[in-house]
């Protein structure tokens, strides 16, 4: 029964878990390790699988917790946007001055989001980057839906204020 459930409900979402881990960690190898660990952990707790209403959210929660542990234990640093930008193909940087300016602005936004407390950052990432519904976020973070909305409001407000203070405006 558990094996069938695992194959039908967990295996199909493993690519989603991998994407989620990659977004959190920013590293291919680490994302792979964390996803593998998450799958094994889910399987180890197979007794719980039948009791859960949202198995996917539970898997996401396990992946997230493992990724956060990894970040904490190794003082992980996600490569900043400037580094990412330097890896972009040359065709994206037709105008070097405009590209530098854009990178600078993106870097400021990245810093503003990264400086948020973990709970705000997670909510903002899950909503604004992964496009999840409030209920899905609530299930993944194991919090109330109203709390999701409150945290999202506070996160966006904090980012907005930081960008206003730094006078970061549209390009």
């Amino acid at each position: 029964m558990s094996l069938e459930l695992f194959l039908s409900q967990v295996v199909p979402v493993r690519s989603k878990l991998y994407r989620f881990a990659y977004r959190l960690l920013g590293d291919e190898e680490d994302a792979k390790d964390i996803t593998q660990d998450a799958l094994m952990k889910v399987w180890a707790m197979q007794g719980k699988m039948t009791e859960l209403q949202n198995l996917e959210a539970w898997c996401m929660r396990i992946t997230r917790n493992l990724a956060l542990d990894k970040i904490k234990s190794r003082k992980y640093r996600i490569a900043d946007t400037l580094d990412k930008a330097s890896e972009l193909p040359a065709s994206h940087q037709k105008n070097p001055h405009a590209a530098t300016e854009r990178n600078e602005v993106m870097n400021k936004v990245h810093t503003a989001i990264n400086a948020l407390p973990e709970k705000y950052k997670s909510v903002m990432q899950l909503r604004d980057m992964d496009g999840l519904s409030y209920q899905e976020i609530a299930d993944i973070l194991d919090i109330d839906m109203n709390e999701v909305k409150v945290n999202l409001h506070r996160a966006r407000k904090a980012v907005r204020e930081k960008l206003q203070n730094q006078q970061v405006y549209g390009l």
Partner: peptide, 23 residues
């Protein structure tokens, strides 16, 4: 004032995740 944030979110959403490894 909101433009940089949305441009950043667009870039992050479009970020290419490496090919899924063999599990």
């Amino acid at each position: 004032e909101a433009a940089p944030l949305f441009q950043y979110l667009e870039e992050e959403s479009a970020i290419r995740v490496p090919a899924e490894p063999e599990w």
